[in-house]
Amino acid sequence: KLLSSIEQACDICRLKKLKCSKEKPKCAKCLKNNWECRYSPKTKRSPLTRAHLTEVESRLERLE
C-alpha cells in the first residue's frame, strides 16, 4: 500500500492505542462500548529543516 492511502484509526482508538477496525460511521470498538466515534483530519507533519537536523546532530555528539 502507498503511504498516502493508509487509513487512520478513529480518535479514541488512537488515543487509547487500540486496534481500530476503521469502519465508518462507527468502528467496532466504539460501537461495542457506545463511545462517540470521530475521525479527525490527518495532520500534516512539517518537513525537517536543516537547522533542526544540525541541532539534533550536535546534541547527539555531546551525549556520545
Rank of each mutant, 00 (worst) to 15 (best):
K16R: 08
A9L: 01
C30T: 06
K44L: 15
L60V: 15
R45I: 00
E7A: 08
T54C: 09
P47G: 06
V56E: 04
E57F: 07
A51W: 04
V56A: 00
I12V: 12
K32D: 07
T54E: 12
P47T: 02
L15D: 12
L48H: 02
L48G: 04
C13S: 01
E57T: 03
C27R: 07
L2V: 15
E7Q: 09
R50I: 04
C13W: 05
L48C: 05
P47E: 06
E64N: 07
L48R: 00
P41I: 06
T54D: 09
T54R: 06
D11Q: 09
K17N: 06
Q8L: 11
K19H: 06
E55R: 10
R50D: 06
S58E: 15
T54W: 05
S46T: 09
K16T: 00
R38G: 13
R62M: 15
L3C: 11
T54P: 05
L2R: 09
Y39N: 01
L2C: 10
R50F: 02
C13F: 00
K29Y: 06
L63I: 15
K42H: 10
P41C: 06
L53N: 01
R45H: 03
T54Y: 07
K22T: 02
S5L: 13
L48D: 01
E61F: 11
K22Y: 04
C10G: 00
I12M: 08
C13V: 06
R45D: 01
Y39C: 01
E55H: 10
S21C: 01
C10K: 05
I6F: 13
S58T: 09
S40C: 05
C10T: 03
L3R: 08
A9Y: 01
K44R: 12
C13H: 00
K24L: 10
S5E: 13
K17W: 06
T49M: 07
K1I: 04
R59I: 03
K22L: 05
L3W: 10
S46V: 02
A51F: 10
C37D: 07
A28P: 01
E55Q: 10
L63W: 03
I6Q: 13
N34F: 12
T43D: 10
L18A: 15
L48N: 01
L18Y: 10
I6A: 10
V56I: 07
S46R: 01
K24S: 15
L15N: 11
R62W: 08
H52Q: 05
C30A: 05
P25T: 07
H52D: 01
T43Y: 06
R14Y: 06
E61D: 13
L3F: 14
E36N: 15
K42R: 12
I12E: 12
R38I: 15
V56S: 01
Q8D: 04
T43A: 14
L15R: 07
C13L: 05
Q8H: 10
R62C: 09
S21G: 09
L63D: 02
E7K: 08
I6P: 10
A28W: 15
E61W: 13
S4N: 08
R50C: 00
C27F: 06
K17E: 02
Y39M: 05
R38W: 09
E64T: 14
H52K: 05
W35C: 09
L3Q: 07
L60D: 03
D11S: 05
L60K: 09
K44W: 10
I12P: 12
R59A: 09
Y39R: 07
R62T: 13
P25Q: 06
C10F: 01
T49A: 01
K44Q: 15
A51M: 12
K42A: 12
N33C: 13
K22S: 03
A51D: 06
T43N: 10
K29F: 04
L53D: 00
K44M: 13
R50E: 05
C13G: 01
Y39W: 09
K22C: 01
K17P: 00
T54H: 09
R59F: 00
N34L: 13
A9Q: 06
E36F: 11
A28T: 12
R59G: 05
E36H: 13
S46I: 01
K44Y: 10
H52I: 02
N33G: 12
C13I: 06
I12H: 13
K24Q: 14
L15S: 09
R62Q: 14
E64W: 09
N34G: 11
D11C: 02
K1L: 13
Y39P: 02
E36Q: 09
S4T: 10
S40K: 04
D11N: 07
L18F: 03
Q8N: 12
I12S: 09
R62E: 05
C27T: 02
E57N: 00
L15E: 12
R45M: 04
I6V: 09
C30I: 04
R59T: 06
T54G: 07
H52Y: 13
T49N: 00
P25N: 07
T54S: 12
L63N: 03
A9F: 02
R14I: 00
C20D: 03
N33R: 11
C30L: 01
K44V: 15
R59H: 09
L15G: 14
R38K: 10
I6R: 04
S21H: 02
W35R: 11
S58G: 12
L53T: 02
V56W: 01
E7I: 11
D11F: 01
K24H: 14
T49E: 00
N34S: 11
R38C: 13
K16V: 01
C20S: 03
S5G: 09
A28D: 14
R38E: 15
C13Y: 06
E55L: 10
C37E: 01
E55M: 14
C13D: 00
K22R: 11
P25M: 05
S58D: 11
Y39V: 08
T49I: 05
L60T: 06
P25W: 00
I6M: 15
N34R: 12
E23H: 14
K44H: 11
E55V: 10
D11P: 00
K42W: 08
T43C: 14
E7L: 11
A9W: 00
K19C: 06
P25A: 06
R14F: 03
R50G: 02
C10N: 06
A28K: 12
N33W: 05
K29S: 06
E57P: 07
E23S: 14
L60E: 01
L48Q: 04
C37A: 06
K1Y: 14
E57W: 05
K16E: 02
K24F: 15
L60N: 09
P47L: 00
P25R: 04
S46K: 02
E36D: 14
L31M: 13
H52L: 06
L3H: 08
E55D: 14
E64S: 14
S58I: 15
N34D: 12
E7M: 08
Q8R: 07
C27S: 08
W35F: 13
S5R: 08
S40V: 07
R14Q: 05
C13M: 03
L15F: 12
K24N: 15
C13Q: 00
